[in-house]
């Protein structure tokens, strides 16, 4: 699991690659939380390099979403594969974490 973070016009852009599962989730959560630990964070997550998302990974995304919301910020995720989008939709997480097909539409949703 690799997390690459870039700051871009007041937006934190994070690319998630590899497997977000019960092995990688604890450290990933700590790292992701550190990137949004400031008031009104605006977070864009690029899931296109993400190969696998388990329930532990979903809970990690949920933890980050809670943190962003608590800080009064916004979050968007884009570029998921069909398989990862299906897990997010079945679990109902698309109603909490706004999902977008492209970076442009995600950026638009965050008001940039």
């Amino acid at each position: 699991m690799e997390i690459i973070c870039v700051q871009e016009n007041g937006i934190t852009l994070i690319a998630l690659s590899g497997r977000l599962d019960n092995v990688t989730s604890p450290s990933a959560l700590t790292e992701l939380i550190a990137h949004v630990d400031h008031p009104q964070p605006r977070l864009m997550m690029d899931a296109s390099p993400l190969e696998y998302l388990s329930s532990a990974g979903l809970r990690t995304l949920l933890g980050v979403t809670k943190k962003v919301r608590a800080g009064g910020g916004k979050i968007a995720i884009f570029g998921m594969s069909d398989s990862i989008r299906e897990i997010i939709e079945i679990s109902g997480f698309h109603s909490i974490i706004p999902c977008f097909p492209s970076a442009a539409s995600a950026r638009e949703a965050l008001g940039v």
């Binding site: 388990s54 897990i87 109902g92 997480f93």
Partner: peptide, 12 residues
């Protein structure tokens, strides 16, 4: 997918 989604729902 069902297992992972269900697991997440249960933990929530």
């Amino acid at each position: 997918n069902i297992i992972e989604a269900l697991d997440t729902l249960l933990y929530t």
